[in-house]
């Protein structure tokens, strides 16, 4: 919240009535320590004070921009390759952004050309495949995707066979399955832009699937959400996620049973899964 939107000087103008209490001088102000909710905003008649109205508009505008931002696939690929990791591009069948939003089913299917390219990737089968995906906020992936991915890759065991990092456009979480299948990967970990909220439009989610393939559901995956500065920090998320991947490999599973067993390891930044599809 910013301060009052009306000029303080007007308060002294005898022809202008004094403004009522607003967010900066509100009886509920002290209670804001207990909630992020927009309480004690004050009101003008029934309406919002100008500053509070524009605060909300700005937060929504950021979220809207994040939903429609372009996915910087080349920059992410360059950052990963600079760090010494191979990458490969893939597309879902969603095509343009409007179709992506209306047809989540198409965002879960791999384009034929991408399936062939992944199937032809040398070095498989793999112990793990990482996917960096746009999801509902390319803003989030553009900002932290490469950082988190390199953090994970650096922390995985040296003797694992690791697939090229898949940079997936138009992706929903369940695109993990056809990607993992085409690569013949035991485990897929997808980093994907979460649906932007008003408080944060740059939050990344990580979804782990052991044994990716047809018939997998949300219950078969583990989710670590809210990866962003101010949440689970991108710089430390990589090592945590690598630990989760190793645990899944040890147990040979993902989903509810892994979560129950590994809560302590992934407690920080954990939130209720908000699947973008």
């Amino acid at each position: 919240m910013t301060g009052r939107g009306d000029g303080e000087g007007r308060m002294n103008d005898a022809t202008t009535p004094p403004l009522p209490v607003d967010g900066t001088d509100h009886p509920l102000k002290r209670l804001r320590a207990f909630t992020e909710a927009r309480i004690g905003l004050g009101r003008r008649g029934a309406g919002l004070p100008t500053a509070a109205h524009l605060d909300f508009a700005e937060a929504h505008a950021k979220a809207r921009d994040a939903v429609h931002s372009s996915f910087a696939t080349e920059a992410i690929a360059a950052a990963l390759e600079d760090a010494g990791f191979a990458t490969i591009a893939a597309d879902s069948r969603a095509g343009d952004r409007a179709t992506y939003l209306k047809r989540p089913d198409l965002g879960r299917l791999l384009a034929d050309a991408s399936r062939q390219a992944l199937a032809a990737a040398p070095g498989g089968p793999f112990d793990v495949a990482l996917v960096v995906a746009d999801g509902l906020s390319a803003t989030a992936v553009n900002a932290h995707g490469a950082t988190v991915a390199t953090g994970i890759l650096a922390a995985l065991p040296d003797d694992w066979r690791i697939a090229p990092v898949v940079i997936a456009s138009g992706a929903r979480v369940a695109l993990s399955d056809p990607i993992g299948e085409a690569l013949r990967a035991k485990i897929v970990l997808m980093l994907i832009g979460e649906r932007p909220g008003l408080s944060a439009a740059n939050s990344l989610g990580a979804y782990l699937t052991f044994g990716p393939g047809p018939g997998r559901s949300d219950a078969d995956r583990n989710c670590v959400s809210n990866i962003r500065p101010g949440g689970l920090r991108p710089e430390i998320a990589g090592a945590k996620l690598a630990g989760l991947v190793v645990r899944a490999a040890e147990l040979g599973l993902s989903g509810t049973r892994l979560k129950d067993d590994a809560d302590d390891r992934i407690a920080e930044g954990e939130a209720r899964p908000q699947l973008p599809g």
Partner: peptide, 8 residues
Amino acid sequence: GVPGSDDV
């Protein structure tokens, strides 16, 4: 009625 329309 949600405070400030934003369900956190």
